[in-house]
Design a protein around this nucleic acid. Sequence first.
DNA 1: GCCAACGTTGGC
DNA 2: GCCAACGTTGGC
Length: 159
Amino acid sequence: MEQQAGQRFWLMKSEPHEVSIDDALAAPRSTVPWTGVRNYQARNFMRDAMRVGDGVLFYHSGCAQPGIAGIARVASTAYPDPTQFDTASPYHDPGAQPQSPRWLLVDVQALRKTRLLGLQELRAAPGLEDLLVLRKGNRLSITPVQPHHWRRLLELLDT
DNA sequence: GCCAACGTTGGC
DNA sequence: GCCAACGTTGGC
């Protein structure tokens, strides 16, 4: 991916049994709505800081082989997550009202699948010591990625 | 299944 | 505003 001025970078976690990088690539226009974010900090990143075209590291979590599995891009601005109003959804939020949505999402377009860059390898890689997702106890499903981390990760993914 | 870490809730 | 209890995340 070419770096553009003002472009920001993100790491976004998905449980592959829900939406994997393969699922995203197989979707129409390789684009999926990032449903189910129920954390205010992560929501605020989408609402306040993300822009169309931002780079995304597609991370598989909650699985046997956690790690970065692909590259994607932010494909929309933030809009209400419809699952918050859906009583049949596990993401239903009885406190959310259609007139005042509580939860937002962005569309994410998968660009390519990469080799699996696993957690162990991430932890061991020089230059990634401060990557937020590697912090002890980190549970945020969306974290900003510094440009120098992004460049380093792309190097690692291409080797 | 276990458990550390964190976020949210609700009584006070 | 404090903080204990509870629920969730996510690696192992």
